[in-house]
Simulated assay, not measured.
Amino acid sequence: MHSIKDTIWEVVFSILPITIVITILQFTLIWLPLETFLQFLIGVGFVGIGLVLFLLGVNVGLLPVGEMIGSALSKTKKLWLIVFFGFLVGTVVTVAEPDVRVLSSQVDQVSGGAIPQNILILAVALGVGVFVGLAMLRIVFNIKLVYLLAGGYGLIFLLAAFTPSTYVPISFDSGGVTTGPLTVPFILALGVGVTSVMGGKSASGDGFGIVALASIGPILSVLVLGVIYG
């Protein structure tokens, strides 16, 4: 019960500032129609309820399961299994990410269907999956994160030179939306679970950085998509 109360207060303090700002603007500058403003307040209420339920679900279900999966994979001592399921989990959790679907629908709308919504979602999901698998390799072989980040972003800037300019901002936004409320908790928990049973490694150190790597994948995949479609 204490955890539920803490979650509720956390959500209240998260959405209260934007609610206050919009309310002040409503009665000073913008003067939205009363019906629209009431819809905003109702929406805030729904968002608050949804966030409470979501955060409870993350703490009760996603985080423990992610850590258990990571620990179980590490105990098998089979590198291909760890990498494969890292790729698989990264892919499927990204397909379910709400932020990715919002971006894909917006891109489909403004591009007039030139970039199909399902193709973009698949490209982003595969990009995340590949780099989550790479993050598993980094944990196993204790590769320095800075090398992978430098190589990844070097490849991004190289590809950007050959990609139509329309796709470049979309690709970077694709990297941003993968750091959403569903993807991040699960893959972070997966990384911490893998490092928790790897001898001589620190879960607090090696378990992090996985989100930074996962964000590179969709940028590269959308840039490749731009080369193909462009």
Score class of each variant (00 low, 15 high):
residue 157 F to K: 06
residue 189 A to E: 08
residue 147 Y to E: 02
residue 163 T to I: 03
residue 180 G to L: 08
residue 149 L to C: 03
residue 156 I to L: 13
residue 147 Y to G: 03
residue 190 L to F: 10
residue 176 G to D: 06
residue 180 G to F: 02
residue 166 T to Y: 12
residue 164 P to Q: 11
residue 180 G to P: 12
residue 196 S to M: 11
residue 156 I to V: 15
residue 194 V to W: 00
residue 162 F to M: 04
residue 165 S to T: 15
residue 154 G to M: 08
residue 171 S to K: 05
residue 152 G to E: 01
residue 146 V to K: 13
residue 195 T to W: 00
residue 199 G to S: 12
residue 180 G to E: 11
residue 174 S to A: 15
residue 168 V to H: 11
residue 178 T to L: 07
residue 167 Y to G: 02
residue 168 V to K: 10
residue 171 S to V: 03
residue 172 F to V: 10
residue 159 L to T: 04
residue 189 A to I: 04
residue 165 S to R: 15
residue 168 V to G: 10
residue 189 A to P: 06
residue 151 G to A: 06
residue 164 P to E: 11
residue 149 L to S: 01
residue 159 L to W: 02
residue 191 G to V: 05
residue 162 F to P: 02
residue 184 V to S: 10
residue 203 A to Q: 08
residue 194 V to E: 01
residue 195 T to G: 02
residue 175 G to Q: 06
residue 195 T to Q: 05
residue 197 V to N: 14
residue 203 A to D: 03
residue 154 G to E: 10
residue 186 F to E: 04
residue 182 L to N: 00
residue 174 S to P: 12
residue 179 T to I: 15
residue 174 S to R: 08
residue 177 V to Y: 09
residue 158 L to G: 02
residue 167 Y to V: 03
residue 193 G to H: 09
residue 147 Y to T: 09
residue 190 L to Q: 10
residue 184 V to R: 02
residue 185 P to H: 04
residue 198 M to K: 08
residue 179 T to A: 15
residue 170 I to W: 06
residue 202 S to E: 15
residue 170 I to G: 04
residue 176 G to K: 05
residue 171 S to L: 02
residue 166 T to F: 14
residue 173 D to T: 13
residue 200 G to L: 04
residue 173 D to L: 15
residue 192 V to K: 14
residue 198 M to E: 13
residue 189 A to F: 04
residue 157 F to T: 10
residue 185 P to K: 02
residue 173 D to F: 13
residue 204 S to N: 09
residue 162 F to H: 05
residue 203 A to H: 06
residue 184 V to D: 09
residue 160 A to E: 04
residue 197 V to C: 12
residue 160 A to F: 03
residue 173 D to K: 12
residue 187 I to K: 02
residue 147 Y to I: 09
residue 175 G to V: 07
residue 187 I to D: 01
residue 200 G to A: 04
residue 152 G to K: 00
residue 183 T to A: 12
residue 190 L to E: 12
residue 149 L to D: 01
residue 175 G to R: 08
residue 160 A to W: 03
residue 174 S to I: 07
residue 201 K to F: 11
residue 203 A to E: 06
residue 164 P to F: 10
residue 203 A to I: 07
residue 153 Y to G: 11
residue 168 V to A: 12
residue 146 V to H: 15
residue 204 S to G: 13
residue 152 G to Q: 01
residue 148 L to T: 00
residue 166 T to L: 14
residue 180 G to H: 08
residue 163 T to Q: 02
residue 201 K to G: 13
residue 190 L to I: 06
residue 186 F to H: 03
residue 168 V to M: 10
residue 159 L to P: 04
residue 151 G to D: 03
residue 168 V to I: 15
residue 203 A to R: 05
residue 170 I to Q: 07
residue 148 L to A: 00
residue 189 A to L: 06
residue 183 T to G: 06
residue 165 S to D: 15
residue 148 L to S: 00
residue 180 G to S: 13
residue 151 G to N: 05
residue 177 V to S: 07
residue 196 S to W: 05
residue 155 L to E: 05
residue 162 F to N: 03
residue 204 S to T: 11
residue 192 V to T: 13
residue 164 P to N: 09
residue 148 L to W: 00
residue 157 F to A: 13
